[in-house]
Design a protein around this nucleic acid. Sequence first.
DNA 1: GGGGCCTATCTAACCGATTAGATGCGAGAA
DNA 2: TTCTCGCATCTAATCGGTTAGATAGGCCCC
Lengths: 330, 330
Amino acid sequence: MAPRADKPTITVADVARRAGTSTAVVSYVMNDGPRAVAAATRERVLAAAAELGYRPNRIARALRSRTTGVVGLILADSPNPYFGDLARHVERALDERDRLVLIGNAGYSAERQRRLVDRFLAAQVDALVIVSADGGEDVTPQAEAAGVPIVYVHHGPDGGRAPLVEADNRHAAQEAVAHLRGHGHARIAFLSGPHDAGPVDRRRAAWQALAGDDPDALLLRCAYNRADADALIRRLVADDTVPRALITATDEQAIGILSGAWACGLAVPDELALISLDGTPESAHTAPALTVTRQPLRAMAEHAVELVFDPAFHAPAAQAPLVVRRSCGC
Amino acid sequence: MAPRADKPTITVADVARRAGTSTAVVSYVMNDGPRAVAAATRERVLAAAAELGYRPNRIARALRSRTTGVVGLILADSPNPYFGDLARHVERALDERDRLVLIGNAGYSAERQRRLVDRFLAAQVDALVIVSADGGEDVTPQAEAAGVPIVYVHHGPDGGRAPLVEADNRHAAQEAVAHLRGHGHARIAFLSGPHDAGPVDRRRAAWQALAGDDPDALLLRCAYNRADADALIRRLVADDTVPRALITATDEQAIGILSGAWACGLAVPDELALISLDGTPESAHTAPALTVTRQPLRAMAEHAVELVFDPAFHAPAAQAPLVVRRSCGC
DNA sequence: GGGGCCTATCTAACCGATTAGATGCGAGAA
DNA sequence: TTCTCGCATCTAATCGGTTAGATAGGCCCC
């Protein structure tokens, strides 16, 4: 690290000396401490602290009190705007509670995730929030061994003991199906992820329950990125098997569909009605704008943070509101 | 914070006892410390540490050694993908150097920025990286008072002493103009930000120098968000003053233009050729895909991190390569 | 007047790791 | 044999706050 100029540090002792008291009193004043301090003394301490520009050293405080005021936030995939947005909301919720946020990107690697958890625990984080894409490895044992509460958001490991916060994905899929039916579509396709697992699979299952006679023929799959969805729709156009109505699990996929469709001259929504079960900010500014069931990221983030502070907290899964824009045909 | 189960902490003392040595020796072993340790002893210590599952407490280490291995990263506006991407690259570069990252979002508020800096300094960060949108308030004095190195990325405060890392924005604008000229456009409009300042203004100035006879008539302005750019292009369509070629300062603006143009039936690139001087990942998947001069975020992030570790480091501004896609008319 | 009880404050142990200085021991030199 | 090194280790101070326990003074009541 860069050689830092060795500024003389102002400590409690300096403040105490200047205020003519002991370090204990200074500490009591700074924290509205466990003991009362006479008003006059409190004033002297505050004045001394201000004059000296005293700033308590959180590291020292953390060592003694065994709590750092820092929460570790691990993202499965930070480039993905969905996770990025979720992370932002978690960060905001923690900031409101005066907690600092240590951030790390696991990049879909179980090994990197484990390494981050290790380093965060060594840094004595007060809690861990894991925004997971595929569940990954369950790091609950590590966290438990360190006595650190842990919460998964969006997706948790199979059979994990740690609490998991996710949206009401069944309801979201049902709403999307109902809306497209309202547009007169009987056969509604669904673009899921590559595997049957997690929140997206709950969306898929809810769709399938309503899909009618031939769900298998209408179930599409691709990775959660634009390029693959783009390629998929081009292939469907080439094969002339484009459905009239499609629900995508994520915006990334919907945007890939949009860009592939545009390139092939396939008109959305006239030839293909589209709803995404996601709703990132970007979905409002695609061409055409996407109709979505917006994932309640803020509510999820707040729920997760609530859980971090109070493991007993309980609230129903937040609902994803239908946001009607253009891509559905409205 | 949640009441953490009080797991018995394993300390150096435990390891020392088990290995039959002193805490000093354990420390020497763990850090390939300042003194040598006999091979046999080293083995015993390592074995004891492994058996007990010892993990050094970074907080204690930080208190003593006055270096935390944590760098503070402050974003002017984390929802903005440009800043988000930049942040990701900074984070990755720091991770490669085994540093942890404390993240904070100032949300364009000078007061929030100051507060974050204060809290990060209290947390004893080893350095600060500030990804700034508008320069904001110069927090260099605060950082200097604490002896903490600081680097601005993208945009720095006017006349600030702290080093600033930005791309070669002049060159980017020149390339965009040249490319559109190659498509036969003589009059090329420029969509800048609301004010003349920072990197975007350097892009604007470079464009203006090449814009020919009537730059004022071709200079447009709007905020760096989709909604405003969307509204702007609709207004131009209504007034029938749409230029034939346009360079936008950012992707956010370009995407807003795209969505507004689509809504008005204005064809891009046929009726409006578009280049954005930005190049977020999203620009590849708009309809049509955006031609951009891609900001060298990774190089900038690495440059910034290099500077954090070695204030004397110097490298030329990284160049923004022209990425030809559809929106320019190619 | 003395005992009891507050209140305000001080003293010092403590958190866990780092590291300078002291110690002990064996090998080689004089 | 004695002295000098050098190596391996141990002891204990230190980083900066926090807080339990000790102390001192003042007030009230019997």
